[in-house]
Structures are given as structure tokens and as C-alpha cells.
Write a protein that binds this DNA or RNA. Structure first.
Lengths: 348, 348
DNA sequence: GTTGGCACTCTGCCAGTATGAGTGCTAACG
DNA sequence: CGTTAGCACTCATACTGGCAGAGTGCCAAC
């Protein structure tokens, strides 16, 4: 059987309807709402065809039809109307970023909020991944007589800090010397190359090895990606808005699975060359999100991809709205982060 | 009617039972489980008395009895057996803190995890409140040519940092000068006194006022308590373990209410001179947690109260277990934080 | 190809009924 | 007088059959 134009139109209407109502639609209601020109019987025939082709199903004999994953796939690939956001929506999103934000963490957590608030889905954001940036400098600062701060300064504005304990007798001058040395050795290296550089160094430094090692350990730890630190989650309560999760066990299981962040990290780390990835239900690699859809996008600063973000929601999520929202938030992120990272014009 | 010894024993057994089962208990089952010596009829008489006194209720005529809040109040005040923790339980708790933790934030988030994991309740932790500590030093660090880091170093090991933008032309020496000046002026002030000190200073400093103001603003903001930053939440998924929250709306409403952190902050900020506070159901000041119980405790370092932590759970929570757990975690916290704050012995 | 008609199926809702858990009351017992 | 057995009563729960409504599939006619 062929998927002719009319079938396509019917399928699209069914999906559009199901996305907002969440209930199966029957031939009669369908005619009234979408195709007054045709009789229910005709629609029934067409629906039967679509069902045979694997696009639709009905939960039981006397129920209306619901779209299957194959239908959603077709929908997002070829039928979805990506309506540009309304001005008010864009303004709403921008307002989340209007506040002054100095630190990357703030931007990231703001992003999670705006994402979940505007899409009504669970949002996830992967913080900028250090492996993609280059080290600009290392700065050690004496804080108290037994404690120092290690600052890792990168070329994309991300700064990470770590406290280390020091034994007494180490003074600011010595710390500055170590800072200079580390900066010189590590300058312009990508963070994936530092381990090598450390190896090389440990041969040449013999003096003060204990102190040196504690600095290196701190650096290494902070540079490594960490699921717990790098993935943040937002709007988990949105799950309660969808009837498909009124079953408390389903809701609990999903939230439990997300809490470990393991899966989220993997979902967000998988890179693709697409601007957006949409993964529908069983297409998902991880069992725990097989009855969800996942939409992700990446953000970048001055052309370099730094991290990604996205939403998890029911399979009938409003793809046509989620996609432009991700787009808009992506641009905001880009702007915010380059604001933080790059030298700012001296305030006039 | 009098609350004689036998009535008390019966009431206690009913509460103990209800805490673990969560279902009303009838006279017959009660006899079999707890008082083989007496007949169900006798128990019925006693139960009727307890009901009249306001300790028990039955949901409908042919249901067993459930304890009322008045009963729980009596229970926690006078009948509860606070069993000391088993060795394995103490070890479990300690294991959460075994890992090396340099930063207060890490300790706090660890605390939330251990609390929720061991009590099966929702946990909340209030980070150390700066208003209770004294400033030891302010340190400005030049990070890049247009950005500096402001470090607030306190006498209890809490260090807070903030980035500020600077206009070019400010060098490390100048920053050091400002640092020294600020340290001198603010040294040994409690954070609630700094605003005054700022006022005083703004008169004497005329030069570089813009820069100076940005430092002061950053300081002020980081010192202020912030609900969003200072309260953290853990184990929200534990809510799904209790049948009383199988109603998805109740669960959603509670989680929604907690997410704003407003109430949590107030719950944890209310100080009392008790070691623990237990607030049962309607005793709670805030409507959103009126069908929960809240147990909180404070933690302190070297005798000074720094913050508090606690759990939110169903009214039938296992008070007898939660209390010693809070106690144990309190000691761990104390130890951890003084480890971070105080000068460490030079590693041998 | 489209449509009306019709028999069929299945869910959801309702009322009725049986069951069982648990109560309150009363009268009898030690 | 406290304790107990007996009994009538209440109410939630589960099951039943019946009925209405939504929707389908198929067939025959247009």
C-alpha cells in the first residue's frame, strides 16, 4: 500500500491531535475536527490502511487510533511544521538570561530552568566540557597558611578551582613560581593532553614532589569530566503533567533512572553532526528511556562545540515547539558564554 | 478517662505497628501480634477509650485504628525508644564521609545523600550560614586581564568566591593593595556587620570608585544568605516508597512546594535551643507540609552553630530511627567541617 | 473511490449482592 | 469489677450482569 498525500495529511492530523490531547481519536471525532468534507467511513478505511502500514494502532477494538513510533519518526523527519517562536516566547526565554551571570554554573542552571519551563519536559544540560578547550594558565593562590587555591584558566572563559592543603613553609613566591612553571608547560594544551605533560614533568621535578603531586592531582580531578558535576537536571516535576505518568511506578522508575545522571551524561555526550537529534522511544539506546523521546542540541562558542543540552519527555511531546525552543536557547547560551569568556569591552 | 499503663502500652504498639505497615490495625490482629494474653474484646474497649481521648481514629466503621497526631506527639515525647544505631549502620554513614572532601559544598551534598538514603525520607541541608562566622581575610586575584576573583576567607573554613570584571590597567599589585585594605577593615567582623563597614569605607575611598563598588557588590551578594544556593535537597524519589503518596497529585504538589526551597529555608532557619526538633503534621507552620512530619537538627563546629539539616517524611515516619541517624550524621558533619576549617596537622 | 448501514466488540458505569473485617453493645463469667 | 463471648450492625471491597456509548470492520449501494 502506498502512503499517498491524503493518508499523509490524515496521519499528520492524528499526530497533531494526539500530541495535545493524549487520547486516541476515532473516525467520527476526527472528521468533525479536521476533515468535515469526508465521511467517517472513509477515514476508517484510510486509518485501517495506516494501521496496516504500521503507523497507527488502537489499544482495543472500540478505541480510536494512536500514532506509533514509526509515525512520529515520519512526522519529525518530513511532516512537522516547525513554527517560529512568537515574539513573546522569545522574550520569555531571553528574560531568563537577562540577569547578570558571571559564572558558567549559573548560566547552565538557568538554562535548565528555562528549558523545562518552556517545554514542559524534563531538561538536562551538559556543562561545557573541558576536553574541548585549551588551558591558558594555571594560578596558585595562597589562601591561608595551610591551604591554597588552584585556578585553571581556559581560553573559553571556563575557570575551575580546587582547594589543596599545603604544608607550612610554602610562601606566595614559591606558589607563583610553580604557577608560572605549570602555565608554561601546559599553556595551549588541550586538557586531554595534560596527562602526558604531567608525566614528562614528574621526571624533571624532584624537589617538593609531595606538594607538586597534590597540585597535579587536583588539576587532574577537576579536568576530568564528571557525571555528577557536569550534568544538571531541571523540571523533574513536569513529569506529573502527563497522564502517561499517572502510574506512580512509571514516574518513580524514570526519575530514579535519571537521578544517577549516568544515562543523561551518555545521552548528552553522544555527538553527532546534526544541529538537533531527536530520538523516539525504542530508538533510544538506554532501556530506561525507551518510552520517552529525547531531543538534544549542542551549543558552541565562537564555532567551537562546548557542550549540549536537551529535554526528555513523553513520546507524544510537542516536537514542533521543542525544536525552535532549543534553537533559541542555543543562541542565548552562545551569547552568554562568549560574554563570560571573551574580553569584555571596557564598560563605557 | 485516664491514660493508664495498659492503654499506653497498647497505644505504643499501635503506633509501632502503623509506622512499619501503614495500614489500620484491628483488635483481632492486634491481639495476635502484640497481646496474646488479652482478648480482642478487651482491646476493643481500650481502643474505644483511646479514640475518645483523641489518640486514635478509624477511617470508617469497619476499619482498624490508626494513630492521630496527638498520639505521635505523645510517642515522640515520652514513649519512643531511641535505639542506638547498629555498628553496621554507623559504618554505613561514615563511609559516605570517608572520601576526601575539600570543599564545604561537597560535604553538604554528601550529607543530603546519606540522610535520604538512610532514612528513606526527603532530606534537606542548610549550608553553613555566613552570618554566623567572622571574616578572616579578603583576597583579590587577577585571573585574566579583564577578570578577577574575589575570595572571602572566614574563620570557620568556609571560603566563598566570586568573579568580577575589571577594567584594564589594574594590576596585581593594585589588587593586593585593595585586598589588604579590605582585609584590614573587615577583619574579625561578623558578616552581618560588613554593610556598616562598607558605608564607612565608601566615604574614605574616592579613587577607583567603580572598581571598588564592583568588589563590594560581589562581596555583599556572596555573603547574603540565598535560598537557592544554601538549601539543598536530596532523595526526593523516596516519596514514591510511601503508599500515602501513591496519589500522584499529592506527590506532585509536595515536590513542587519543596522545589522553590522557600519553605525549606524557613524550616531550617528557625532556630531553637533543642538538639532536635520534631514537628508533626498540622503542627507545621507551612500549609504545604501539614501532612508531613519534619525532623531537624543543627550542626556546629567547635561549639558554634553553623547550619542545620533534617528530613521531611510521612507523619508515620520512623522517628526512633531518624533521630539517632541525625545525631550520628551531626557528629560526622562536625568532624568533617572542622577538618576543612582548622589548620591541619602537617601531613606526617 | 466514497458512503450509509449494520452487526459486532469492547470499555466504562451503574446497581445489586456477597464477603469479610472490624466495630459496639450487652450479658454473663470469675 | 474487669474480662470475655456472642451477636447484630456497618462499611469497604470485589464480583456480577446489564446497559449505553464509542468505535470498528465489512458489505452493498451510489
Amino acid at each position: 500500500m502506498e502512503l499517498d498525500e491524503r493518508k499523509k495529511a490524515i496521519l499528520q492530523a492524528i499526530i497533531d491531535d494526539y500530541i495535545v490531547t493524549g487520547v486516541p481519536i476515532g473516525s467520527q471525532t476526527f472528521c468533525q475536527k479536521y476533515m468535515k468534507g469526508l465521511s467517517p467511513a472513509t477515514i476508517r478505511n484510510e486509518m485501517a490502511g495506516l494501521e496496516q502500514m504500521g503507523y497507527l494502532a488502537h489499544p482495543h477494538t472500540s478505541a480510536g487510533r494512536v500514532p506509533l513510533e514509526k509515525a512520529y519518526r515520519l512526522y519529525v523527519d518530513r511532516m512537522m511544521r516547525i513554527s517560529p517562536l512568537k515574539k513573546s516566547e522569545v522574550e520569555l526565554i531571553c528574560s531568563y538570561f537577562a540577569q547578570k551571570m558571571d559564572e558558567v554554573e549559573q548560566v547552565i542552571s538557568r538554562t535548565a530552568s528555562v528549558l523545562s519551563d518552556t517545554t514542559n519536559c524534563i531538561s538536562m544540560v551538559l556543562a561545557p566540557q573541558l576536553k574541548l578547550v585549551r588551558i591558558k594558565a594555571i594560578q596558585l593562590v595562597l589562601v591561608t597558611e595551610d591551604k591554597a587555591l588552584v585556578l585553571i584558566i581556559t581560553d573559553s572563559g571556563i575557570i575551575r578551582d580546587a582547594f589543596i592543603s599545603i604544608s607550612s613553609g610554602i610562601d606566595a613566591g614559591y606558589l607563583q613560581m610553580i604557577s608560572n612553571m605549570l602555565t608554561e608547560k601546559l599553556h595551549d594544551l588541550s586538557t586531554s593532553e595534560v596527562d602526558e605533560a604531567f608525566m614528562e614533568m614528574s621526571n624533571s621535578i624532584v624537589e617538593h614532589t609531595r606538594f607538586f603531586h597534590s597540585v597535579v592531582d587536583a588539576l587532574r580531578e577537576k579536568i576530568q569530566p564528571s557525571e555528577q558535576r557536569d550534568v544538571i537536571l531541571g523540571g523533574t516535576n513536569n513529569i506529573f503533567k502527563y497522564p502517561e505518568y499517572y502510574d506512580i511506578r512509571k514516574a518513580g522508575d524514570l526519575l530514579q533512572a535519571l537521578e544517577t545522571k549516568d544515562i543523561l551524561f551518555k545521552l548528552l555526550s553522544k555527538d553527532s553532526d546534526m544541529k538537533f537529534t531527536i530520538t523516539i522511544g525504542a530508538e533510544n539506546e538506554y532501556e530506561q528511556v525507551r518510552d520517552c523521546s529525547v531531543v538534544t542540541a549542542t551549543y558552541s562558542v565562537s564555532g567551537r562545540k562546548l557542550g549540549s543540552f536537551g529535554v526528555i519527555g513523553p513520546i507524544r511531546m510537542n516536537y514542533g515547539k521543542v525544536v525552535p525552543i532549543l534553537g533559541c536557547i542555543g543562541s542565548c547560551l552562545n551569547e552568554m558564554l562568549s560574554g563570560i569568556g571573551e574580553p569584555q569591552r571596557s564598560s563605557k
